[in-house]
Computed example of a mutant assay.
Amino acid sequence: MSGPILTRREGAILEVTIDRPKANAIDLATSRLMGEIFRGFRDDPDLRVAIVTGSGPKFFCAGWDLKAAAAGDAVDGDYGVGGFGGMQELRDLNKPIIAAVNGICCGGGFEIALSADLILAAEHATFALPEIRSGTVADAASIKLPKRIPYHIAMEMLLTGRWLDAAEAHRWGFINEILPAGNLMARAWDLARLLESGPPLVYAAIKEVVREAEGRDFQTVMNKVTRRQLQTVDTLYASEDQLEGARAFAEKRDPVWKGR
C-alpha cells in the first residue's frame, strides 16, 4: 500500500509504517485509514502480530497534525473506527502489537505507542506530551500513563510537557528495550516472529483479561475467568489448541497452534 500509511505483510505479521513527512503527524484522513488497516488486521484470521513504526530516521510520530487543524481539521472530528491512530479505541483488538519507535514520539504519537503491547525504541528516540503548550489535553495519555509509570512522573510529563530520552523512558518502564537505530526493525521483526509462532488464542485471552482487570478488583476478574464469562477465555478452554498444548507437553514436542 502507498500513501500516508505503508503496509508490509510477511507470513502472519503485518508491518504498518506512518509515512507523512516531515513529522509523520496524523490528520483525520490518516487516522481513519489507520483504523481501517488495524480493523483488517484484527479481523484477518491469517494475521497474528503487527508492528507499527514511522518512516525516516527522525520521527516515529509527532501526533496530531496541528497544520491540518489550523486548516480546518477539528480536534474532536471523526478519527475513524479505532479512534485516533486507528487502534487505541478499536474494540476486541486481541492480537499483539509491537511499537518500534524510531525517533521523536510525542503527543498523539506517544499515545499510539502506549496502545501497543511492547515498545522498542532506538537509542535516539525521545518522548513527550507537549499538548499543554498548545492548549489541549493529552486525553488518552492522561488515562493510561499514570497506570503505567509512577504517578508523579506521569503528572510531570502531562503538566510540563518535558522531554524524556530513551534511557529515562526505559528506567520508568514504559519501553521494553533500547536498540541502536540500525538494529531496531530487525529486533522488532525477530520479536514479531517469536510471537507469530505462539498460541493466538492464548494471546487473545491475555489481552482481554488485562483489559477487564483495569479498574476492577482481583476477585471480580478471577470469577469472570474461572466461570468462562470472557469470550476469549471460553473460546480458548473449548479449543483444539488447548488440547494440543497438553498433548505436546506430554509427548515432549513443540505444539502446532491452529488458532481454533
Rank of each mutant, 00 (worst) to 15 (best):
A71H: 00
A71S: 08
A71F: 02
G72Y: 01
G72M: 09
D73K: 00
G77K: 10
G77T: 10
G83T: 08
Q88M: 12
E89D: 15
E89C: 10
L90T: 06
R91N: 06
R91Y: 05
D92L: 05
D92K: 11
N94I: 01
N94F: 14
N94W: 15
K95F: 05
P96S: 02
A100M: 06
A100C: 11
N102K: 11
G103S: 14
G103V: 07
G103K: 10
C105L: 05
C106M: 15
G107W: 00
F110S: 00
I112N: 00
A113K: 05
A113G: 06
S115W: 03
S115V: 00
D117Q: 07
D117S: 07
D117A: 01
L118E: 10
L120I: 10
A121I: 12
A122E: 13
A122S: 15
E123Q: 15
H124T: 13
H124N: 12
A125K: 10
T126A: 10
A128M: 13
L129K: 06
E131C: 10
I132R: 14
S134T: 13
G135T: 09
V137I: 15
D139H: 05
A141N: 04
A141I: 12
I143V: 14
I143L: 14
K144F: 01
P146T: 07
K147G: 09
R148E: 13
R148W: 05
R148Y: 07
Y151T: 01
M155L: 14
M155Y: 13
M155P: 03
E156I: 07
M157A: 15
L158S: 01
L159Q: 12
L159W: 02
G161M: 10
L164V: 05
L164T: 00
D165G: 14
A166I: 14
